[in-house]
């Protein structure tokens, strides 16, 4: 079973507990600027979106690293700080911007799923971030839609705006 962080921005309240928890787990300090997960606040739209590494199967960051500092540990792309030389090539290669240089350590930092116990998911008060079996991550969404199947044609007005 491969586990992953599954993010539902609709549930996010922008409290940034995930950033606090992430920085605390990795640095021993509360410091959102060193968090591997970031909450974006599109406040004039009323939308808040937590964003972090999705652990690409064929990871650009891993492939481009000139010193082999990023390895694949059971699907998790982990930066080995003792090998990383801080060249930042991975930060250029990553299409999503989720590998970042940390001036405090001179290394790059990215989500490592906290070795299988992600602090962000544990800290999230609304289950906007959950840690779950990647192969069934859509299961809950499917169940919600399945539940509507027999009423959907009559209840178009009940569907969320995005469904129209």
């Amino acid at each position: 079973m491969e586990m992953a962080l599954v993010i539902d921005p609709g549930k996010c309240t922008a409290c940034r507990q995930c950033e606090l928890a992430c920085s605390y787990r990795h640095t021993g300090e509360f410091n959102p600027s060193r968090s591997r997960i970031v909450v974006f606040d599109f406040h004039t739209k009323g939308r808040f979106v937590p964003y972090t590494c999705t652990q690409c199967d064929q990871a650009w960051c891993q492939q481009v690293c000139p010193v082999g500092a990023i390895t694949n540990e059971n699907g998790v792309k982990v930066v080995h700080e003792d090998i990383c030389v801080g060249c930042k090539v991975c930060t250029i290669a990553c299409p999503f911007g989720t590998v970042n240089y940390d001036p405090a350590s001179g290394k790059v930092i990215k989500c490592d799923l906290c070795g299988g116990d992600p602090a962000c998911a544990a800290a999230c008060p609304t289950e906007a971030i959950v840690y779950t079996d990647i192969s069934v991550q859509g299961f809950e969404k499917m169940r919600k839609w399945a539940e509507r199947v027999d009423t959907a044609p009559q209840a178009g007005g009940d569907l969320p705006p995005a469904a129209h």
């Binding site: 309240t13 922008a14 409290c15 940034r16 507990q17 606090l20 009323g46 939308r47 808040f48 008060p125 609304t126």
Partner: peptide, 11 residues
Amino acid sequence: TNQGCFGCTIA
């Protein structure tokens, strides 16, 4: 939507 302030788990 509802929104939490920094660190707030009430929102």
